[in-house]
């Protein structure tokens, strides 16, 4: 079902929107995978994720990773149902503004 268009100022900022868009079709993604895929610096991504967590749009968990031989943990990022709804509505609004049909 198509989402009702609703422009969301909170996620229109480019990096926030891109992170939400990447997470949308996934259950979750490793922090490093997001940074590499979107070609973002870790500092920039870290700040963006923190902002999205404050908005309630993503959650993060730390867990031991099969990618690491040491004891350091990997941060995993997941879009919340609130974040998914906000992203879908914002995307619909962008498409409407651009004159696209869903």
């Amino acid at each position: 079902m198509a989402a009702e268009p609703r422009f969301d100022e909170a996620i229109h900022a480019p990096t926030r929107l891109r992170v939400c868009a990447m997470l949308r079709p996934l259950d979750e993604a490793d922090f490093g995978a997001i940074a590499r895929t979107l070609e973002l610096s870790e500092a920039n991504l870290s700040k963006t994720v923190r902002n999205l967590v404050e908005l309630g749009y993503v959650t993060t968990t730390k867990q031991s990773s099969p990618q690491r031989a040491d004891a350091r943990q990997t941060t995993t990022v997941k879009l919340t149902s609130q974040g998914r709804a906000a992203f879908d509505a914002h995307l619909a609004a962008l498409r409407a503004m651009a004159g696209e049909t869903a």
Partner: peptide, 16 residues
């Protein structure tokens, strides 16, 4: 907070 407003077409192209 990032404040640079993107045109819808630009944002959609980036997502694509």
């Amino acid at each position: 907070m990032e404040s640079d407003f993107e045109e819808p077409e630009t944002a959609l192209a980036a997502l694509s």
